[in-house]
């Protein structure tokens, strides 16, 4: 396979995952706004921060304002992480690697692009936001489904999966990191239960609120939630789960190519941290330091993969 093709597949699926994650963040922010009214301003700031878009937003628009932020996250071309920017980038990469995709996957991506470009041609009024977010999630699920149903399980599939899960791990780590202070067992919270809305936000952003309730009876605890999102083996957006997928798919590449690269060592190291760690140790070490350390490691792994598999000349 061409290095360029590996790159295209990897980035196509990173961008698709990013589009979906951004949509989820908007949904969460929107929900808080509905239930909390004015108290939601702070929430929107942390949404922007999670999407690494706060600087760009401030530079362009200044004060956080709900309609602006939603528009910025959904469709602003000036925001490279906006849903529309991500979908366009995913589709651009898909065009580049058209020969590596099945007809089903290509058509799913291409139609997603056609539909969203039309739907997001103008600002979306509040009343239509839930429907638009639904559409985005459904379309992303369709692409993933088409990929699962039709793509050969070879190196192409591996690069697509590595892109998906590295992006997902990165996103979950950021969501947690932006909210880490909520989860800290601070003096004020000793003996009191967690701010319900805050923890709900965290779980909703990763589609994990129901799953958490199923797996954990009783009151949610900061440690319980952090542990769930970092270490749970079953939760498909937890850090451990996402990194284990990256590691597995990199393992397949090692088998197929019969070469062990530096990126394999990095992936193993990351996985070992999450496989052997415990939430107690993490809190002892410092949740924020732990998470920002991971975000850096993810970036380093991504760079190393690009080098090892010759994404560029």
């Amino acid at each position: 396979m061409l290095g360029k093709t590996a790159s295209g597949l990897y980035w196509m699926f990173r961008y698709l995952e990013r589009a979906e994650n951004t949509a989820r963040l908007i949904e969460t922010g929107f929900r808080i706004a509905l239930t909390r009214g004015k108290g939601a301003d702070h929430e929107w700031s942390s949404v922007l921060q999670t999407a690494s878009a706060n600087d760009a937003y401030e530079r362009l628009y200044g004060e956080p304002e709900q309609a602006r932020i939603v528009d910025f996250l959904l469709r602003d071309p000036a925001n490279p992480s906006s849903v529309l920017s991500c979908i366009m980038a995913a589709r651009q990469n898909a065009r580049m690697v058209r020969t590596a995709l099945t007809k089903e996957v290509w058509e799913a991506v291409n139609e997603t692009y056609i539909m969203l470009r039309k739907r997001l041609a103008r600002p979306v009024p509040d009343k239509d936001i839930p429907e638009v977010l639904d559409l985005i999630r459904n379309r992303c699920a369709l692409v993933q489904g088409a990929m699962h149903g039709t793509m050969l399980r070879n190196d192409m599939f591996d690069f697509a999966r590595i892109g998906t899960f590295l992006e997902r791990a990165d996103s979950t780590a950021r969501i947690l990191d932006v909210k880490y202070f909520v989860l800290l067992p601070s003096v004020n919270f000793i003996g009191s239960s967690l701010d319900n809305v805050q923890w709900e936000t965290v779980l909703r952003s990763v589609a994990g609120d129901r799953a958490y309730s199923w797996l954990n009876e009783g009151e949610p605890s900061p440690m319980g939630i952090a542990s769930f999102l970092i270490f749970d083996r079953r939760m498909p957006r937890s850090l451990r789960f996402s990194v284990s997928k990256v590691r597995t798919n990199m393992g397949y590449l090692m088998q197929q190519y019969d070469v062990r690269h530096q990126s394999h060592d990095l992936a193993e190291g990351l996985f070992a941290q999450l496989d052997n760690g415990s939430i107690e140790l993490v809190f002892e070490y410092g949740l924020h330091d732990f998470l920002s350390g991971l975000v850096n490691d993810f970036a380093a792994l991504s760079k190393q993969i690009e080098t090892d598999f010759r994404f560029e000349a």
Binding site: M1, L2, K4, A6, D155, V259, R310
Partner: peptide, 22 residues
């Protein structure tokens, strides 16, 4: 077959070669 661009190709050992993941 592969779809290649000029940047994927270079001359290696007297042959025209494409940059693959391997």
């Amino acid at each position: 077959v592969e779809l290649i661009e000029g940047t994927d190709l270079r001359v290696v050992d007297g042959r025209v070669a494409m940059r693959t993941t391997r």
